[in-house]
């Protein structure tokens, strides 16, 4: 579930069990769904399915509703497009759940030409009814979100879909430009904190610097910490420039640059107001940078 606190009772984690995620081309054998769908292109339609098993007695207890009348909807949402958030989403399959129909399969066929870069698959369990009949904290409105689970499947551009990173020759790419001799270069647009993080931030690592590129490929923790800290510093600093907006970062959506920056600020400067962080940056720049470097230690970063 997302971190938002819902104003009604929801399902506990173990009330719903998903199993048997399968994928395959129409008329071909089904395979267990993996994180990468190898050899996909626009000409390959995909059939995807998942079993949903509900502990209905537990569900009724969770929601403080009568098991015999409780109805929920299992909804299969399919999104596609690179980035943290899908570019387009549609409801691919819906099944109504009740105490006589608690084990169902959600399945859909996706036209290959409509897909792009990755699939965002989400199973949502929504409240269907009975409306306005339970305890005060029971869900009362149709469509109330009770439980959700999502997973992503890469179709192409593996590296573009999460934190896009690319090894490239800076001599070829940035010849004569100031960044030519930099070990890495982060490309992003500080004027658009609403932009999707995965689709709009890209890190280039200089393959001309053999030691840097080898350590990067080897996953050297100190190098990666320095790179992540650089990205964090750039975004936190840009966000702090919005001087008059204490709540500047509060309204950004999950997956946006703004939301990621807010998480990083909370990690690096836990409990500090925006004004205090600005003061630290202005008067104690060493501490400002060290706080971010410490927060960028792999494992600390969300």
């Amino acid at each position: 579930m997302k971190r938002i606190a819902l104003p009604f009772l929801t399902l506990s984690e173990n009330t719903i069990e998903l199993s048997e995620w399968t994928i395959g081309e129409p008329g071909q054998p089904r395979y267990p769904l993996e994180e990468v769908q190898e050899n996909w292109d626009y000409e390959k339609d995909l059939e995807i399915g998942v079993e949903v098993n509900v502990n209905f007695e537990q569900a009724a207890t969770d929601l403080a509703l009568d098991q015999s009348t409780l109805q929920m909807a299992a909804v299969f949402m399919v999104g596609t497009g690179a980035g943290t958030m899908p570019r387009v989403v549609h409801r691919a399959c819906t099944r109504i759940l009740d105490h006589t129909n608690k084990n169902i399969r959600l399945a859909t066929t996706l036209a290959g030409h409509t897909l792009s870069s990755q699939l965002h698959l989400e199973v949502r369990i929504l409240f269907e009814g009975p409306v306005e009949s339970g305890k005060p904290l029971s869900p009362a409105l149709k469509g109330a979100k009770l439980w959700q689970f999502d997973r992503r499947i890469l179709l192409e551009d593996g590296g573009c879909s999460r934190f896009p990173i690319e090894l490239t020759s800076f001599t070829d790419t940035f010849q004569g430009m100031p960044e030519q001799n930099a070990p890495w270069y982060v490309v992003w647009d500080p004027s658009n904190f609403h932009a999707d993080f995965g689709g709009n931030v890209r890190l280039y690592v200089n393959s001309d610097m053999e030691e840097v590129s080898q350590r990067f490929v080897d996953g050297d923790r100190l190098l990666l910490q320095a790179i992540v800290a650089d990205v964090m510093t750039q975004m936190i600093s840009a966000a702090l420039e919005h001087d008059n907006e204490e709540d500047f970062l509060s309204g950004f959506e999950e997956g946006s640059i703004g939301q990621q920056t807010r998480v990083w600020i909370e990690t690096a400067f836990r409990g500090q107001s925006r004004e205090i962080i600005r003061t630290i940056r202005r008067k104690y720049p060493g501490r400002f940078h060290a706080s971010i470097l410490a927060a960028a230690e792999l494992g600390s970063e969300e």
């Binding site: 819902l6 909807a73 989403v89 409801r91 949502r124 929504l126 149709k142 469509g143 109330a144 979100k145």
Partner: peptide, 20 residues
């Protein structure tokens, strides 16, 4: 839009039928 974004976090607006 602010209200709708919060509402959409709580209720799946896309699940509602056209009239709702």
């Amino acid at each position: 839009i602010k209200i709708l974004r919060i509402r959409n976090e709580i209720i799946d607006l896309s699940y509602l039928d056209d009239d709702q």
